[in-house]
């Protein structure tokens, strides 16, 4: 089992529809140091696909998506550059 890195920043995008969670992530990923993890909390089903797709397009790393007890996911992204 891989250990979940503690996020350096958590973006609360719960209740927000795509593309807003992605826009928030693109803006705020630069606030954390290189190799740090940003957690995006989102419950729009589109975010579950779109955050990893954004990572692929922008060459950041999708670490994993973890279900939240209240619904939605914490989607972890590692800043690569």
């Amino acid at each position: 089992m891989t250990e979940v890195t503690q996020p350096a920043l958590t973006i609360d995008a719960l209740g927000k529809k795509c593309p807003i969670p992605i826009i928030m992530l693109a803006e705020q990923i630069n606030y954390v140091p290189l190799n740090a993890v940003v957690a995006v909390l989102a419950d729009d089903p589109a975010a579950y696909t779109d955050v990893p797709a954004w990572c692929r397009l922008k060459s950041h790393r999708h670490v994993g998506s973890y279900e939240l007890p209240e619904g939605g996911w914490a989607i972890h992204v590692r800043r690569n550059y």
Binding site: C18, A46, T49, D50, W54
Partner: peptide, 17 residues
């Protein structure tokens, strides 16, 4: 349905826009 297309989801590509 307010869900993205199952095709785009299955492919893992951007579903918005």
């Amino acid at each position: 349905t307010l869900r993205p297309s199952h095709v785009l989801e299955a492919m893992g590509v951007l579903t918005h826009g």
